[in-house]
Nucleic acid binder design. Structure first.
Length: 263
DNA sequence: AATCGCTTCAACCGCTAAGTT
DNA sequence: CAACTTAGCGGTTGAAGCGAT
């Protein structure tokens, strides 16, 4: 598989976006809809690569984004979904309307990981830590911020939180999220159904409903092409069904976005 | 008030999957 | 069928913000 250069690096801006750039991008997408990110910067008069524009739009400028703190319910949902799907941030984001994969990923790394460690749960395996949390955290994490996590784990692992109760997979607000590590759910699942219903849009474009009605316009008309199945690697229908049944157990079954055939 | 260390998060990078030629 | 092209994903980075001292 060939790999093309992302963009002409010579004449592209990098770093933080300015207000003007944001305005240009929003104006362009409002007028023309999403799609064809490669040519968008030029058409919109932006000195950015398409990738950067796409990211900026998806993570920051999209009008349907829900900004602000995550709720306790969202926390638990993320934890549960992560237990099922692993680091499939885009799939997790697909279950949290108004949240982006990047946002969830950041939130996971900065808040939830620590929260789980404090509860005595390994954030990677979602199982109770069998050794001192900080040690396990260090082993589990490949991040360059291991030391920071360890520090955090130590500091937040007070006698109260590190005692037996902390190992429960329990929400702070007593949400009724099912327990994963002892609930009989197969934690080794690594694939999941598509997060969005298939859409007649270019390449792997997301379903319109995640990108707000007014903006999407007719992105699909710009470059009609067959559907592209969700990127999740080689998901077989039986695997999808398996995932769906797990999501069902969590009360998260995909409904229209589900491709397992169960609806 | 100044400095330092930690946390957060927007943005970048490298890579893969899948459509197109 | 192979090479090319493009969108999208996940990991990582670094600047900015913030609290502690």
């Amino acid at each position: 598989m060939g790999r093309s250069p992302c963009c002409e690096k010579a004449h592209t801006n990098k770093g933080a976006w300015t207000k003007e750039e944001d305005q240009r991008l929003v104006a362009y997408i409002n007028a023309h809809g999403e799609g064809c990110w490669r040519s968008l910067p030029k058409a919109a008069g932006l000195q950015r690569c398409g990738k950067s524009c796409r990211l900026r739009w998806i993570n920051y400028l999209r009008p349907d984004l829900k900004r602000g703190n995550f709720t306790g319910e969202e926390d638990e949902l993320i934890i549960n979904l992560h237990g099922l799907l692993g680091n499939k941030w885009s799939m997790i984001a697909g279950r949290l309307p108004g949240r982006t994969d990047n946002e969830i990923k950041n939130y996971w790394n900065t808040h939830i990981k620590r929260k789980l460690l404090a509860r005595g749960i390994d954030p990677k395996t979602h199982r109770p830590l069998s050794v001192f949390p900080a040690t396990a955290a260090a082993a589990a994490s490949s991040s360059h911020r291991q030391d920071q996590l360890m520090t955090a784990a130590r500091s937040s692992c007070s006698p109260e939180t590190s005692s037996g109760a902390a190992c429960c997979y329990r929400s702070d607000d007593e949400a009724s999220a099912p327990t994963l590590h002892d609930g009989g759910i197969d934690l080794n699942l690594s694939i999941s159904p598509p997060r969005q219903p298939p859409s007649p849009s270019p390449m792997r474009q997301q379903a319109p409903d995640t990108t707000s009605g007014e903006v999407v316009a007719d992105a699909s008309s710009e470059k009609p092409s067959p559907n592209r199945e969700q990127q999740s690697t080689g998901t077989s229908s039986s695997e999808r069904k398996k995932i769906c049944s797990c999501l069902n157990l969590l009360g998260l079954h995909g409904g229209e976005g589900c491709t397992c055939g169960d609806g």
